[in-house]
Amino acid sequence: MSRQRLKSDLPTKICPVCGRPFTWRKKWEKCWDEVKYCSERCRRRRSNDT
């Protein structure tokens, strides 16, 4: 069996909309480099000029 990682060991990013840190998720495994926002709500609230 593989050993589970601690949440503190996972990579994090800062959301440009709300300014909060968010942690890597399994569903972002293949596209982590493209992930910019912590949630769908922040993605919808992003400014139109970016």
Rank of each mutant, 00 (worst) to 15 (best):
M1H: 11
M1P: 15
M1R: 14
S2W: 11
R3A: 06
Q4R: 14
Q4D: 08
Q4G: 01
R5V: 07
L6K: 13
L6T: 09
L6D: 09
L6M: 04
K7T: 09
K7R: 11
S8V: 13
D9R: 09
L10G: 00
L10A: 02
L10S: 01
L10Q: 03
P11Q: 02
P11G: 04
T12R: 11
T12S: 03
T12K: 13
T12A: 02
K13I: 13
K13Q: 15
K13R: 15
K13A: 12
I14T: 15
I14C: 08
C15D: 15
C15V: 05
C15G: 15
C15T: 04
C15K: 14
C15W: 06
C15M: 14
C15R: 05
P16T: 00
V17K: 13
V17W: 01
C18P: 14
C18S: 07
G19W: 03
R20A: 12
R20K: 14
R20I: 00
P21S: 13
P21Y: 06
P21M: 02
F22T: 08
F22S: 03
F22I: 10
F22G: 05
T23Y: 00
T23C: 01
W24F: 13
W24D: 08
R25G: 01
R25D: 03
K27C: 08
K27W: 01
K27G: 07
W28P: 00
W28L: 04
E29T: 14
E29G: 04
E29Q: 11
K30E: 08
K30A: 10
K30W: 00
K30C: 02
K30T: 03
C31W: 00
C31N: 11
C31G: 01
W32Y: 13
W32H: 09
W32N: 06
D33Q: 10
D33G: 09
D33H: 15
E34F: 03
E34W: 05
V35H: 05
K36G: 01
K36S: 07
K36F: 01
C38P: 13
C38A: 12
C38L: 08
C38H: 08
S39H: 12
S39N: 02
S39G: 03
E40C: 15
E40M: 15
R41Q: 14
R41G: 12
C42E: 08
R43M: 04
R44S: 03
R46A: 06
R46H: 07
N48L: 08
N48Y: 01
T50H: 01
T50E: 13
